[in-house]
Deep mutational scan, measured.
Amino acid sequence: LTVQLGNLEWHFDNPEQALKMAEELAKRYQLKVEIDNGTLKFK
């Protein structure tokens, strides 16, 4: 699973870790998370 923020990307083997990080980033920057083809992206 990949977490993508702008041109930064983090790759996780563990989806739970990816979701946890995505939630933290979304909270911190007040963004919405969307999943696009196995990639978590922020809007």
Rank of each mutant, 00 (worst) to 15 (best):
L1A: 06
L1W: 15
L1I: 12
L1K: 03
L1T: 09
T2A: 06
T2F: 06
V3C: 07
V3K: 01
V3Y: 03
V3I: 11
Q4L: 11
Q4D: 03
Q4Y: 08
Q4V: 14
L5N: 02
L5T: 03
L5G: 02
L5M: 07
N7F: 13
N7I: 10
L8G: 04
L8M: 13
E9F: 14
E9N: 10
E9L: 14
E9K: 15
W10D: 00
W10M: 06
H11T: 08
H11M: 05
H11Q: 06
H11A: 05
H11R: 09
H11E: 03
F12N: 00
F12T: 02
D13F: 08
D13R: 09
D13G: 08
N14M: 07
N14P: 04
P15N: 06
P15W: 15
P15F: 14
P15I: 13
P15H: 10
E16W: 13
E16N: 10
Q17Y: 11
Q17N: 09
Q17E: 14
Q17L: 13
A18H: 01
A18R: 01
A18Q: 01
A18Y: 04
L19P: 00
L19F: 14
L19M: 13
L19H: 09
L19R: 09
K20E: 08
K20A: 13
K20G: 05
M21Q: 03
M21N: 02
M21V: 09
M21W: 15
A22K: 01
E23W: 13
E23M: 14
E24V: 14
E24W: 15
L25M: 06
L25P: 00
L25K: 00
A26T: 04
A26F: 07
K27N: 08
K27A: 11
R28P: 00
R28N: 04
R28A: 05
R28W: 07
R28G: 02
Q30E: 07
Q30L: 08
L31M: 08
L31S: 02
L31V: 05
K32A: 10
V33F: 15
E34K: 05
I35W: 14
I35Y: 13
I35V: 10
D36A: 10
N37A: 08
N37L: 05
G38N: 10
G38S: 06
G38T: 06
G38W: 05
T39I: 15
L40A: 03
L40Q: 01
K41V: 11
K41W: 08
K41R: 14
K41L: 07
F42N: 01
F42I: 14
F42T: 02
K43D: 04
K43C: 14
